[in-house]
Design a protein around this nucleic acid. Structure first.
Lengths: 269, 269
DNA sequence: CGTGCCGTATCGCTGTACGATACAATCGTA
DNA sequence: TACGATTGTATCGTACAGCGATACGGCACG
């Protein structure tokens, strides 16, 4: 059996355990800490591995896993070789998407956009330094795992991220750049602060942002931001295509109006 | 702002709180109980509503919500009118899908199937009395909300469910029928035990199962089961189309071979 | 056939989480 | 603009839930 191992670029926020907040229930934190261990793992985990990775003792891991298992949030692996996340998690994912007003507003627009563009169309939501994909309408080309809901990418080096930063003040942009763990995900990833700022300025002028192979070799993506009523950027719409079928200029000329229009439609309700 | 209200047919298992298991951490159970409150709700909830619905006091709700909020599993609604599930949930959903070997095996086959069938293609996984959609490749027609990952449907009245029951013994089928809350979701939903059993026998003979408008008006679905190495049915592959474009016979003749082939490909690795 | 490491079970002590209650801020109605 | 209902927030002493060290049996590996 094969397990998908694709890394997540370490952009996930490390849940910093809160000191002595009298309302903070650490048993809950431990439970979610344990569940989060799977973020870093590409395979089923044993009790000891879970305990070690979560930074809790073996006994704690035992209790937590036992409890989560009763409730369906953790399962034994099919061949009894460790634990994996449980199916009940999907129930909550559905709740999240269903109750997120942005997703609700965006989804008909996305469908329409997908029909017109005939390329992959994504909706991503901002979570501090990263973007999390909340809706994905794939083209014929991709594999399912390349387009998982819940996948996350850094803000600093993505089209969507730059579209978002374009709607922020310089100070906030600098803060994001500074706090981001900027690594070269591909050889083309832009990690230099000044270059990033230049890209953001470019996005401000054009009203959309572009990224070329910064996350995935051969992929070109264009994005426009989605804004709250007060102008705060909350997420982005993306169109992604393959450089084997498009050159950057043509791609841009063709899809910039579409993605801009779609974002506009969402922003003014 | 509109919130999606579509009911879930009450098939979700009620987490029965375990009596006095010495390893059971009830603080964790309470937390997930609180999160699960959103399953039944179509709108943001206040602290009091959460406390009431989860069957815990207001103080408990306060602590739990506070904690989950710190960790990103609950958020304030955009217009400050209550709480909604938080985005961190999506991280876990991704983990689940990524680590589920069935999803991994099925996904390339599903993509291929979607290309050939040009109708909606789904993968669902069994959870006791219900099927939960784990992968959905929509056609042009649907809205995004009609095809959410995590949506669940009952086994007793769906094509996928009957495809699964076809691979069970009669006793187990009867048990499922007995324990299911059989309600008419549409006027066409089959709820009579004998008729269900007949449909299951039919599925056994054909190797695939059919359902006509039992969940959604105007929808026809065909499904084949996915099996573990020992023959236990774990889930199903579906193809779903619209009766405005297909009559049942044609649909069946066209897609039965495709869905059977796909399921076969998955079953023998 | 032994030796790891797996998951499971046990058991007193301590400190965590409990829930009643009181407070503050906000909304919406008149 | 003032009111009353409902929201989220803060406090506090006590009981018991969860802590973690440790010990057990079993399965899979060499």
């Amino acid at each position: 059996m094969r397990y998908i191992q694709r890394a997540e670029y370490g952009v996930r926020p490390t849940t910093h355990i809160d000191e002595d907040d009298p309302l903070f229930v650490q048993a809950i934190a431990r439970a979610l800490q344990v569940l989060s261990v799977f973020h870093e793992s590409g395979k089923p985990l044993t009790l000891n591995e879970i305990g070690a990775a979560a930074g809790v003792g073996k006994s704690a891991a035992q209790r937590v896993v036992h409890t989560l298992r009763q409730l369906g949030y953790i399962e034994r692996d099919a061949n009894d070789r460790g634990y994996v996340p449980g199916i009940r998690i999907l129930d909550h994912a559905r709740d999240y998407l269903r109750l997120n007003p942005l997703v609700a507003r965006a989804s008909p627009v996305l469908m329409e956009l997908r029909r017109n563009a005939r390329e992959r169309v994504d909706l991503s939501l901002r979570d501090d330094l990263r973007l999390i994909y909340a809706a994905r309408l794939q083209s014929k080309r991709e594999t399912f795992f390349a387009t998982l809901i819940g996948q996350s990418v850094p803000i600093y080096c993505t089209s969507g991220g730059r579209a978002i930063m374009a709607h922020m003040g310089d100070a906030e942009v600098d803060d994001i750049i500074a706090r981001s763990d900027r690594r070269e995900i591909t050889p083309k990833t832009i990690t230099d602060p000044d270059q990033i700022r230049a890209k953001v300025r470019e996005a401000r002028e054009h009203g959309y942002a572009l990224a070329l192979e910064e996350i995935l070799q051969g992929e070109i993506a264009i994005a426009a931001a989605i804004l709250a009523a007060d102008g705060t950027p909350l997420g982005a719409i993306h169109i992604a295509g393959s450089l084997s079928e498009w050159d950057a200029d043509t791609f841009c000329r063709r899809f910039a109006p579409l993605v801009g229009e779609a974002a506009g439609a969402i922003n003014r309700f």
